[in-house]
Design a protein around this nucleic acid. Structure first.
Lengths: 138, 138
DNA sequence: ATCCTAACTTGGACTTTGTCTAAGTCAATA
DNA sequence: TATTGACTTAGACAAAGTCCAAGTTAGGAT
């Protein structure tokens, strides 16, 4: 993730303390925070950071392809820094826990051309639903 | 869709004009309206119908399994009356148009047990992304 | 080292989407 | 046709996100 700040500077980003903090907060595996959660954790390190800046920075990271936006429930979007490894999501219907998973094969290939209605298909997002071990036993 | 009203009455629903209008608005194929769109069309037929009733009725139809809730963008949920035919969604990144599609095979089967992390997997939702014919040529 | 300036950040108002509640209305049964 | 609990209503409220004018600052220019 420290490469990230370098990559961004190479793209002409101004490297502000706010952006650095947002990038730090998003570091790690299986991280799927909402914008508000990102803001809360950013505030812990940089108390004056505003919600608007968190939204702006997240939006920029998404446009640059460094972070994925995930909408697993109808509520707040979540931000997934694992953008450089193709993956899908497995969501617990009980507690909302999210895991990154990798299905076999190319999901797009499963859509026959007769089901494409003239669209140029570029990708597919899959949300697997189920119960996590804790919720299965509860 | 007229069966729907019968089915619902069989389940103890009070058959009000408001519920009838919401059910009528949701009739058809490839219908993916937001709650506000449903409300707007319902108002055209029954001017006094309130937003709260539209939300209540949509929520009830979803609980009863008669309508699916779809979140293809991070914005408003959409309501899909095509709940009795398993299908997935193909969304145009240009204009937001949505088509119901049926991929080949069982999407859940593509997730190996080593990628299930102890979850009991019950289903999968797929959103295919692409450009519709109009947006491809624009 | 310091200055300049466009880029960035801020706080707050505003919008969109959805939920909740108290009071009024009505469908279905008797 | 009377009754009653389920349904509906308007509007307040809440959550998530956007927008803007004014203030601040990173980083190149001097």
């Amino acid at each position: 993730m420290s490469d990230l700040l370098e990559r961004l500077r190479g793209r002409g980003w101004r490297l502000t303390s706010q952006r650095r903090v947002v990038a730090e907060v998003l570091d790690g595996d299986h991280v799927h925070l909402t914008a508000d959660e990102v803001h809360a954790r950013a505030v812990a390190r940089l108390p004056e950071i505003s919600r608007a800046t968190v939204y702006n920075t997240l939006g920029e990271l998404v446009s640059l392809g460094e972070v994925l936006e995930v909408a697993t429930d109808g509520r707040a979007k979540r931000y997934d820094p694992n953008a450089h490894h193709a993956h899908q999501h497995l969501v617990c219907s009980g507690c909302g826990a999210i895991r990154d998973v990798r299905p076999e094969g190319d999901p797009v290939a499963a859509l026959p051309s007769t089901e494409r209605f003239g669209f140029t298909v570029t990708g597919a997002e899959i949300t697997y639903r189920g119960l996590c071990p804790d919720c299965t036993n509860a």
